[in-house]
Design a protein around this nucleic acid. Structure first.
Length: 424
RNA sequence: GGAGAGGUGGCCGAGUGGUUGAAGGCGCCGGUCUCGAAAACCGGUAUAGGCUCAUGGUCUAUCGAGGGUUCGAAUCCCUCCCUCUCCGCCA
């Protein structure tokens, strides 16, 4: 959520920066300003009446204790009370309207983000490794995995429909091993504290991290209980400190968490339907940081490096791109995507997205910290995949496939696979 | 799921309709004292919003959440949430 004071005091700046996203959100700034002004005017009026009522009510108390008649004052205050009730009703309506708009306005892009319209405008920051050379035509992961008995898409569909994965035997063990590999890496090498959160999420928490109210149709919801399936660990973990005032010495907070991620992919029907590149349920290890605002962008670089380390250790070729203003997510002020090379697809796959949401989420979730001057401030909240599992799995199978159809996985995974890295 | 108890400021804990934003204690900050520290004593110590702006002032709201009664609600009524104890059920 944007700071209403910023909109009030600097509407032109807000409009300009929203415009760089190319979604027309800047058109609603005037509407916000109008509602804000209306609310303040009504509130002032109401506050003045309340002040009068408080004062007179005290006098009534004093008069009554002395045995004096306070009838006329009481009648007058009854009138005032009715006026207050009417005003407060009106205020609540305006407030709700204001919130409705404010909650669907995206974050302002950071100055360092390239202005652009779409994915094609995203600048590439760097590459690591090279595309694997094959002496044969590399196969897609679904062929490799099904032949080796690691993956069974047909039976997954039998249970849950299309867009679900069933891992089997060593395939299941690889998924489990990768989760442990990632958590071990981030907790022991990168200084993150592991969290294992609930997967069912209350509506308030979904609003806190920005999935709601705007992206309701992308979320799985349990209608009987008004709970949502976590679309990413970012939601439960970033909400962990909601409504709290942290001490400055608690920052930075670095959390990482494994969760399955549930996504309806409602707008993506027909896209990448084959295999496990776009699915309704996938595993992910997520990194979340709460940091002092002055460290936000430094920490974003560190977090991105932490995600890159995963691919480096696994020997997977990747590139890092900076999302341009038009391609960035709703909550983000700056995002790096890491894309791993998948030879069987002959394309790069997004396995990580590292973002600084600045104060956007901390303001929504009302997470603050008390600084050295005793002032409460909003920390920057960052999130980054470290990494998404399904696509990492794809890259591993496709990169390390052999001519005979077997797969030779990197040695760093040996201890997670009972020593077996050659799957055949 | 059933029965009961309870949710008050950073913490503990008073408070059943009238200057209660809230006693008291602890903690914390500042000061006095001291060579220094402790003790003692004095003072201060919530959050959000509006107006005003002189680092200040002022008004409003907030005692789990929301609604109601009343001139006036932490205190009374209703709904919901959460915690604890016992029973049931269950992995």
């Amino acid at each position: 959520m944007l700071d209403i004071k910023l909109i009030r005091e600097n509407p032109e700046l807000v409009k300009q920066r929203l415009a760089t996203r190319g979604r027309g959100d800047e058109a609603r700034v005037a509407e916000i300003a109008t509602l804000d002004e209306k609310r303040r005017k009504l509130a002032t009026e109401s506050d003045n009446l309340k002040s009068e009522r408080n004062k007179v009510s005290k006098e009534i108390g004093v008069a009554k204790s002395k045995g004096q008649d306070a009838g006329p004052s009481m009648a007058a205050m009854k009138q005032v009370g009715d006026k207050i009730a009417a005003l407060d009703q009106e205020i609540a309506t305006v407030e709700a309207q204001l919130q409705n708009v404010l909650l669907v306005i995206p974050n302002l892009p950071h100055e360092s983000v390239t202005v652009g319209k779409e994915a094609a405008d995203n600048p590439e920051m760097r590459r690591w490794g090279t595309k694997t050379e094959f002496a044969f035509q590399p196969k897609p992961h679904w062929e490799i995995g099904e032949k080796l008995g690691m993956l069974d898409f047909a039976r997954a569909a039998k249970i849950s429909g299309s867009g679900f994965i069933l891992y089997k035997g060593v395939g299941a063990r690889l998924e489990r091993g990768l989760i442990n590999f990632l958590l071990d890496l981030h907790t022991t090498q990168h200084g993150y504290t592991e969290i294992f959160p609930p997967f069912l999420i209350k509506r308030d928490a979904m609003i806190g991290t920005g999935q709601l109210p705007k992206f309701e149709e992308d979320m799985y919801r349990l209608r009987d209980d008004d709970l949502y399936l976590a679309p990413t660990a970012e939601v439960p973990v970033a909400n962990l400190h909601r409504e709290e005032i942290l001490r400055e010495d608690q920052l930075p907070i670095n959390y990482c968490a494994y969760t399955p991620c549930f996504r309806r992919e409602s707008g993506a029907a027909g896209r990448e339907t084959r295999g496990m590149i776009r699915v309704h349920q996938f595993d992910k290890v997520e990194m979340i940081k709460l940091v002092k605002p002055e460290n936000g962008y430094n920490e974003l670089e560190k977090m991105t490096a932490n995600a890159e380390k995963v691919l480096q250790l696994l020997g997977l070729h990747y590139r890092v791109i900076l999302l341009c203003t038009g391609d960035m997510g709703f909550t983000s002020a700056k995002t790096y995507d890491i894309e791993v090379w998948a030879p069987g697809q002959n394309s790069y796959l997004e396995v990580s997205s590292c973002s600084n949401t600045e104060e956007f989420q901390s303001r929504r979730a009302n997470i603050r910290f008390k600084d050295a001057q005793g002032k409460n401030r909003f920390p920057h909240i960052l999130n980054g995949s470290g990494t998404a599992l399904a696509r990492l799995y794809v890259a591993l199978l496709e990169t390390y496939q052999q001519a005979d159809g077997s797969v030779k996985l990197p040695e760093v995974l040996a201890s997670y696979l009972g020593g077996q890295t050659h799957i055949c």
